[in-house]
Amino acid sequence: MRRLVERVGVPRLLVGLFLLILFALAGLQRLPVKMLISSALVRIGMNGVLVLAMLPSIRAGLGLNFGLPLGVISGIVGMLVSLELRLSGLAGFFFALLVGVLLSLPAGYVYGLLLNRVKGEEMMVGTYMGFSLVAGMCMFWLLAPFKNPEMIWVVGGKGLRVTIPISHRFGGVLDNLGKFSIGGVEVPAGLLLFFAFLCVLVYLFSFTRTGMAMKAAGMNPAFARASGVNVEKMRILGATLSTVLGAVGIAVYAQSLGFVQLYLAPLMMAFPAVAAVLLGGASTSRATVFNAVAGVTLFQTLLTISLPVTQSVIGGDISEVAKLIISNGMILYALTRKEA
């Protein structure tokens, strides 16, 4: 029993327990529990890749990737290109992914170069790099030469809209792929499989020679150097992979949401992902695929179910507040706790 507690960790047990209580309350209040579970599943798959994007960054010793908006913006541009070409369905989605990844590769590389110049301050610099990039892109969205009327302001005919609906293009393509229902719970099989596929890739990568080198570089740069590892290169690779996963992540997120959100939306994209991976038991220097999966499951289920339950029990909506408290509290906790 004790070993089980140690393995899973006290914070995760507490959150898990809290979740059970919420589910019980939901049952008592005669809320549609099955529907809640279905929507939790969707949110897990939808946010999972963004959480997974934290791993390469943490492993390479860059800490939590607060610069995730860089990848997010690459992914958004990828989707915009796909929309501009009026592609739809799986083809549209994967074309968007392709363009997003191609854009995020050089972006992540440059980001890695930047982080190599600010060793020890990666998270701070990443945060503000993300913030300023989002601000800078606001101008780009206004001036970008996209022509498809689905995307641009109706009045004036210039500049991209704040939210672009994509449900008729590739919205829900993964969610609905192989979707099945079991005992009244709808399972978005395609979405979860896609997430699982990426998890396996990241997991396998961590055992490759490069993956091991990256881990060594992150844990102890001096050791890594003495073992013939090019630490700078590993850090750049970590930043690049994280950015690429960010680009893929936002595409998965948007197809579930049914909208591409521009302007200030990417600003806070990193925080729920950071909070989730921390909740899953990762620290600023150590993270596993298990941490990411467990974290996103707990965090997103909590958010899904706390809204209707608190609404029916208290009669008010505190879910947004709860989300902010949990996510920022987790981040604060992890950043103040220095590893021995």
Binding site: A216, M219, N220, A222, F223, A226, R286
Partner: peptide, 10 residues
Amino acid sequence: DRRNIGLLLD
């Protein structure tokens, strides 16, 4: 420097 360069302690 065993602990810093020689080993990955964790």
